[in-house]
Design a protein around this nucleic acid. Structure first.
Ligand SMILES: [Mn+2]
Ligand SMILES: [Mn+2]
Ligand SMILES: [Mn+2]
Ligand SMILES: [Mn+2]
Lengths: 229, 229
DNA sequence: ATTATAATTTAGGCAAATCTAAAAATTTGT
DNA sequence: ACAAATTTTTAGATTTGCCTAAATTATAAT
């Protein structure tokens, strides 16, 4: 098949594999391991091998036995398309249907597989072309254009650093509900006041209010440091 | 399986069969034939038999070999849930995303399978609880409540009858585009002025404008007759 | 009442996506 | 360098959903 724009022929399962490989490929720059895919997708390595072969057949991934897998240009573009849909739907659910940020992911996992360019582009327009999803993750544009916002983990910045909370690393419902309960949200001004040597916990000031958070919490919050004067 | 609320375990294919059986069951009051299902779903009778057995196993349909099939109470409720979703999504596409009424069906066929009560009920609220979809078909409420609007085919009403165009029987893109081209839309006032004996074509007045339409067209337009004084 | 026709079901097979168990290749530890 | 541990792949089975071809049952025609 020459020039196979296979976007519309892909199964849901294939799309989910491509998306997972994309996410795993971002972290390390190297090839993605079969076991890593299996673990993240809660499936068996043998199933992964099967699927990888099919994806390789369709020119979505580069694959050599025992050597791990990586996305081709086509695979990458496909992944960005799915992620665009996922994140736009998440914005829709929050902005238009009053979902909370811990409820959107599950439904977006389904909606991201709906096939219609017109649908997703109209949705984009309805939402006024948002650049970030409810968890602070960037939304690829129509052409897969991606602006990775420059941000740092709260746990990694030096003392006295102030900035805006712009994202979460873990976007599990558990963590998000924890943040809600403690009044931590995207957009808040956060300043690191003190770091406990003993357990790495942080004393922070968040929108003027003082509180203490564990290292684990801090290592799952992204801030964008305030512009130095 | 006792008390199996299987709504969330159903496959897309199963849902499509249930929906088709529902639609076919509405017309004639009797059992639905295997061949009728196969034809409407563009599949083979043997495939239908296969699926019917599975659905029967799950208590969604009543089935006796060679005797046709009908929905159980559970099957009926399931069908109404899917149709509710389909039609609400169609309204969404037209009202919020500026789709035209001939573009919505295909996408709604996909969206109707998204599983989330919260999603569909929020969508219902966003749309202000619409009672009819863009083609004039009634939208079941949360509990499957259905108000079949009383309406008649334009081809069946006597001469001089006037009424509002409230629906289409055929909602194929071809027919809908034809109506667009000829300035016929839901909400128009239509009055039958004359019926040609030769070919059954009708002279009508539509929102004041006179035009002639074939019998085929008239037999695919529903009107609600004006209240007599 | 047979026979012909039509509808439906069965039998057997195939592709996608998964699994378990076993084999093969790679990596690690000494 | 070689054995042990780990990772990955293969082999073979299962389920869903579909197909073709053949058999069965029901219906219509004479
Ligand atoms: Mn998500
Ligand atoms: Mn997100
Ligand atoms: Mn429709
Ligand atoms: Mn409709």
């Amino acid at each position: 098949m020459y020039f196979c724009v296979n976007k519309y022929l892909m199964t849901r399962s294939e799309e989910n594999y491509i998306k997972t490989i994309f996410h795993l490929g971002r972290k390390g720059t190297q090839e993605v391991a079969t076991n890593a895919i299996a673990e993240l997708m809660e499936t068996k390595p043998s199933s992964v091998t099967d699927m990888i072969k099919r994806l390789s057949e369709k020119d979505l991934v580069n694959y050599k036995r025992y050597q791990g897998v990586s996305l081709t240009a086509l695979g990458n573009k496909t992944a960005l398309g799915i992620i665009r849909k996922h994140r736009l739907w998440e914005v829709f659910l929050v902005e238009k249907l009053d979902f909370s940020w811990d409820e959107v992911h599950e439904v977006a996992e389904q909606l991201e597989h709906i096939k219609s360019d017109k649908l997703i582009d109209s949705l984009d327009r309805l939402l006024a072309y948002p650049k970030f999803d409810p968890h602070g993750d960037p939304i690829p544009d129509k052409n897969g254009g991606f602006k990775e916002r420059d941000r740092e983990l709260l746990s990694e910045v030096p003392i006295n650093t102030g900035g805006v909370c712009v994202g979460v690393k873990d976007s599990s419902a558990t963590f998000l509900k924890f943040l809600d309960k403690n009044g931590i949200a995207l957009g808040n001004q956060i300043k690191v006041m003190e770091i406990e040597e003993f357990d790495g916990s942080l004393n922070i000031e968040i929108d003027g209010r003082k509180m203490q958070i564990s290292h684990v919490i801090a290592s799952n919050l992204y801030i964008k440091a305030n512009d130095g004067i």
